[in-house]
Nucleic acid binder design. Structure first.
Lengths: 157, 157
DNA sequence: CGCTAATGATTAGTGCACTAACTATCGATG
DNA sequence: CATCGATAGTTAGTGCACTAATCATTAGCG
């Protein structure tokens, strides 16, 4: 009976899994946004798309999906819902009939004003300082980087 | 023009959002598990349920859903798929016809042996030390705790 | 005892997220 | 300039995750 055995047993405890803590934290934090984003009429993924467009627009689906680290197939129906909600426009680019120009409607642009309060509100609700947020942020970025250096390269398409 | 304005503008940058980094990290880490869990025939949520049952079984749906911090409505179809895969059993408790006794099949119990390698494999793949993992884990637990102390109590049902 | 409230699980409906397959357009090369 | 491969986006199918509604059973209380 070695220590290794004990460690291995221990390693399978749910409470010790980083991946578990991470998924719970992600769902919990996103859940904490819900009441705040409800007032804007946005889900959390939709909020991220709007942040994306407030930074620069119009932009293509591929561009947005790269920025959000998600598949175009995920973004596509999401954009359709945002269009139905009246926040964005979807038009083909004149020069290139393949790509879509995703832009903001006046309501979509106006929503930004209300959204400026969100980050501060959330920091308050979570009881985090700006310092703590940026430290956690840095940890997450490191973790993301770690998943990209894995043995089986994601093979940049 | 005050600093506050600049900060507020800055706060809406996608790159600065903790919630964004968190969701990407969660998806990335879970994604990194996929090739490893594929060999066991499990998805990541299913893997968490199995961890849960390897610790103690049989247990009820409510018990599992509490342990995983998820709704029973999420767990219910997940268990049905695990049953179809031959890893678990679902039987009514004799004394209480409402509650379900979720237990392990021989295959489900045997799978634990292969699963013991998973945490170590993942630590390697992510290039993290045991130290780093436990530090990140602690950060996530703090963050989860922060979401529970919010102004609007989740109201313990 | 009999009724009512609470509990345990499931179902329906919405929205995300992924892979794989498909359509349409563009560009590059012979 | 015609074909062929690459690029942009969508659709189909699976599985999670949530809320709200439903059904069955149990427990509690007058």
């Amino acid at each position: 009976m070695t220590d290794v055995t004990d460690e291995t047993q221990n390693d399978l405890l749910l409470e010790h899994q980083l991946c578990f803590a991470l998924t719970v934290a992600s769902r919990s934090v996103v859940g904490a946004y819900k009441p705040v984003l409800d007032r804007l009429g946005l889900t959390h993924p939709q909020y991220l798309v709007m942040l994306c467009l407030w930074e620069s627009s119009p932009r293509s689906v591929r561009d947005i999906s790269d920025a959000l680290a998600q598949e175009p197939a995920t973004i596509s129906p999401l954009l359709r819902r945002l269009e139905a909600a009246g926040f964005i426009t979807r038009q083909r680019v004149p020069g290139d009939e393949r790509t879509l120009a995703v832009g903001l409607t006046p309501q979509g642009a106006a929503l930004r004003q209300q959204a400026t309060a969100v980050p501060g509100t959330m920091m308050d609700r979570l009881g985090l300082t700006r310092e703590q947020v940026s430290q956690l942020h840095a940890s997450m970025m490191d973790l993301i980087a770690a998943t990209k250096t894995g043995s089986d390269a994601p093979s940049r398409r």
